[in-house]
Design a protein around this nucleic acid. Structure first.
Length: 477
RNA sequence: GUCCCCAUCGUCUAGCCCGGCCUAGGACAUCGCCCUUUCAAGGCGGUAACGCGGGUUCGAAUCCCGCUGGGGACGCCA
């Protein structure tokens, strides 16, 4: 029996699930699914002052929205403090860790001084061989790092990375309040949860030799590592709020499809030839660390938007009809609890989906199909709804009245006959009608719009537009 | 400052490991044209990159060294 691949995503709940975290989660998930392994979700909430329940909930919601399902967990490190303490005590007992009584302030001051003198801000190890604990202080526990030789990180993406042990710090594994710190908890958990591959951001590469030393001190086998390149903002610095939305759920609110976000994220650092668009199954089938790049990538919202529009186009109108509902309510186009004929909505969406980049765009365009009242665009109104176009509109409205089959073909035929009568081009009639029913100068094909709208709504909108022209004429003259 | 990582169009990337097929391919964005009742979508085409300097070699985007540039880490954060 071969050991099953086990990977984990281990966010700390000090913020929302962000773009970078989501990409890390995605690569872990993909790797697990590709190898039919196990994907574990673990919440690293040992920093109690900054971790919140809200963020835990938000991270879980983000994961669910993206469809990154986990097989075990979510585990919480705060539930496991006893385990970490036991491991730390074992290290002390074996002489591999010791109490340090320096205060945080002293440490901070020494670090600062070292930096100013251009020296490495490394802990000097002064408490290593302390015989008598100074009174009145509770100590933190430090792991005794070897100070000679070197530690090699054999990374699936970067290859072999060598660190001199002399530059490794005696890191704190237990705070003076006896709560464990990150470097201890990751190692203990990864051992305990039998993690075979640690897939995480590049920013952890420097922590890796320290953790390897910890594995070795415990006598455990070191897992495989894969350090993913960072995602940067447009100015090539670490992606942050000032670069725009970074929270995954913010993209949900902006009307992005989870599949599109995932597809965008996967191509940040990973590729499969020239292919840009992948189904989930294709991703799972093709994913490999061999095709993950080493260089950091700049997050490009425009390409994400393009991908989203591609996904919108390729999603069936029925599915979009369900997905757009919250946005219709959000835009106050439909009120909560109001019933909307889904079949009709799907037909309306079918005309709109290839010109909507997001679900928000789609919802906004749907407004003119759903409500009778039209919000006229001022420029379009001035240009197309005036005394010059009024006769065409009037004639059309009159003939529309007698049309009993409100279909694309019948409408087209009728429009043609109106334009012939007046000796005008189709655009000269279509544009005024477009503005009358949609309020703007841009929309799907006019026959499609009217067909979806139906006779009743069309006539009402036409009447309203004509009345508006007449009254504004009266008021300005 | 010290350590670590990285380096192909503005951006994401293919090619690099196993030198010649590279006059460097694709995608986003951008520009132009076509289609057209408007706007999209779509089609066609254009602009645009191997950071620099040394090697190695008949031959280097591809291998080696240096430089430069960028990023990350250096917490009783994770």
């Amino acid at each position: 029996m071969t050991d099953k691949t086990r990977v984990r995503f281990a966010p700390s709940p000090t913020g929302h699930l962000h773009i970078g975290g989501a990409r890390t989660a995605l690569f872990n998930w993909l790797y697990a699914r590709h190898l039919d392994g196990t994907f574990i979700l673990r919440i690293e909430d040992t920093d109690r002052s900054r971790s919140t329940e809200e963020f835990i909930a938000a991270i879980i919601e983000g994961m669910k929205w993206l469809g990154l399902d986990w097989d075990e967990g979510p585990f919480r490190q705060t539930d496991r403090f006893d385990i970490y303490r036991r491991y730390a005590e074992r290290l002390i007992r074996e002489g591999k860790a010791y109490y340090c009584y320096c205060t945080a302030e002293e440490l901070e001051a020494r670090r600062k001084e070292a930096m100013e003198q251009g020296k490495s801000p490394k802990y000097d190890g002064r408490c290593r061989h302390l015989k008598e604990p100074p009174g009145g202080r509770s100590g933190a526990v430090r792991f005794m790092m070897p100070q000679s030789g070197h530690t090699v990180v054999d990374d699936l993406i970067r290859g072999k990375v060598v660190f001199e042990n002399s530059q490794l710090d005696d890191l704190i594994i237990l705070r003076s309040d006896s709560t464990p710190t990150y470097n201890l908890t990751v190692v203990v958990d990864d051992v305990d949860m039998k993690i075979t591959h640690i897939v995480r951001g590049d920013d952890h590469l420097n922590n890796t030799p320290k953790q390897i030393q910890l594995y070795q001190a415990f006598g455990y086998e070191v897992p495989e590592f894969a350090h993913l390149p960072m995602i940067l903002g447009s100015d090539k610095t670490r992606l942050s709020k000032r670069h725009g939305a970074t929270s995954v759920l913010a993209y949900r609110e902006m009307g992005y499809l989870p599949e599109a976000l995932l597809n965008y994220l996967v191509r940040l650092g990973w590729s499969h030839g020239d292919q840009e668009i992948f189904t989930r199954d294709e991703l799972i089938r093709h994913f490999s660390f061999d095709s993950v790049g080493k260089a950091a990538a700049v997050f490009n919202p425009e390409k994400l938007l393009w991908l989203n529009s591609q996904y919108m186009m390729n999603t069936s109108p029925d599915v979009l009809a369900e997905m757009v509902m919250p946005f219709l309510i959000g835009e106050e186009i439909v009120s909560e609890g109001e019933q909307i004929d889904r079949e009709w909505l799907a037909r309306a969406i079918d005309t709109l989906k290839e010109r909507s980049k997001t679900l928000v765009d789609l919802a906004k365009s749907l407004r003119y199909y759903i409500s009778i009242d039209v919000k006229y665009d001022q420029k379009a109104k001035d240009k197309f709804l005036n005394e010059k176009t009024l006769p065409y509109l009037g004639d059309l409205r009159h003939r529309l009245d007698t049309l009993n089959e409100f279909s694309h073909a019948a409408l087209e035929q009728l429009f043609r006959s109106v334009t012939e009568t007046h000796g005008i081009k189709l655009g000269a009639l279509a544009q005024p009608v477009r503005v009358a029913v949609t309020g703007g100068a841009e929309s799907p094909g006019i026959f499609d719009v009217l067909e979806v709208l139906g006779k009743e709504k069309t006539l009402k909108k036409l009447d309203n537009a004509m009345r508006m022209i007449e009254t504004s004429q009266g008021s300005t003259r």
